[in-house]
Write a protein that binds this DNA or RNA. Structure first.
Length: 282
DNA sequence: CGCTCACGGGCGTCACCTTT
DNA sequence: AAAGGTGACGCCCGTGAGCG
């Protein structure tokens, strides 16, 4: 990407000696803006079919999409007329229609995905789920972050009381929402969306409630994402790495170092069927 | 029909945040 | 301070859609 940031004259990240400095240009930094957009459409975020890193770079370069909210106004702006999407090189009528449909499909989005998609420092997929579960709705979340702005008081204490959220992450959230330009961009996005509230899972008599589980290898009866969602809905914590705190490793064919480590640590290892048996009563 | 790209599935590393 | 875990990488592969 040829353009450099007018603030730092460089790309989003640069190294100075041992330190990695982060451009503070925010939204006026093209390198950051395009990376944020790529993150926005990535798998665990909005996951819009037909809109990947490559397309984002092109749309950004042409000024068609410069911030997330503009994804949702793309059809209104380029669905018809002289300069419409289906006339672009590499695009035909079919792919254009599919993209517009894929975008419409994601206009309704779970709160946790939206939070992750915002690309706030330190707030990844896991932290986004914690926040969504804690606050439930966008309205509640937004109000809480604003109320926590000064880093003191009940809202701040409540925020850092969430298991897995510390001061660094809390500060990152608060300062993002305190930046006017950033905040305005988020508001424009939210205005385009229908955000689904998060319901706390009813753990009930789940055999795996409170257990930490790790998946490795290939699952044959479900996808990773399905398996993870199922485990979480049963109150299990799904981690990506094996440690002494792991309760169960579910290992499919092709399992590698995680299975070795789990064996060394004496952790219960189940195959996919064993896992399905375990959770079948729940 | 060849090519490019999206996409899903996987592996591992490592800095660094949170918890103990 | 160490342990535990997350987040963000980079890398691999195979498959399938669809443009040209």
């Amino acid at each position: 990407f040829p353009t450099t940031c007018p603030e730092c004259g460089s790309y989003a990240l640069r190294e100075e000696g041992d330190a990695v400095r982060r451009c503070t240009g925010g939204l006026i930094c093209p390198a950051q803006a395009v990376e944020k957009l790529k993150h926005f459409v990535s798998r665990a975020a909005f996951d819009i079919d037909g809109l990947g890193a490559k397309q984002i770079e092109q749309f950004y370069a042409d000024g068609w999409i410069t911030e997330p909210a503009q994804i949702f106004t793309l059809e209104a702006r380029y669905g018809k007329g002289m300069h419409q999407l289906k006339n672009r090189e590499g695009w035909g009528d079919k792919s254009a229609r599919k993209l517009f449909q894929a975008i419409e499909n994601k206009r309704t989005i779970p709160l946790s995905r939206l939070l992750f998609a915002l690309g706030i420092r330190h707030v990844g997929e896991s932290a986004s789920k914690l926040l969504a579960r804690h606050y439930g709705t966008w309205t509640a979340f937004e109000a809480a972050i604003e109320a926590a702005r000064d880093g003191v008081g009940a809202a701040w204490d409540d925020l850092i009381s969430i298991d897995g959220i510390g001061k660094v992450m809390a500060q990152s959230l608060v300062s993002t929402f305190a930046q006017d330009a950033e905040r305005a961009s988020i508001d424009r996005l939210v205005a385009e969306l229908d955000i689904e509230a998060t319901v706390r899972p009813d753990v009930g008599n789940s055999p795996v409630a409170g257990k930490t589980v790790v998946f490795t290898g290939t699952l044959e009866k479900m996808t990773r994402a399905e398996a993870k969602a199922r485990a979480e809905s049963l109150g299990a914590k799904v981690s990506g790495s094996v440690s002494a705190k792991t309760d169960i490793l579910i290992a499919g064919p092709g399992a590698g170092s995680k299975a070795t480590k789990a064996t060394a640590l004496g952790i219960t290892i189940l195959d996919e069927d064993g896992w399905l048996d375990l959770i079948s009563d729940a």
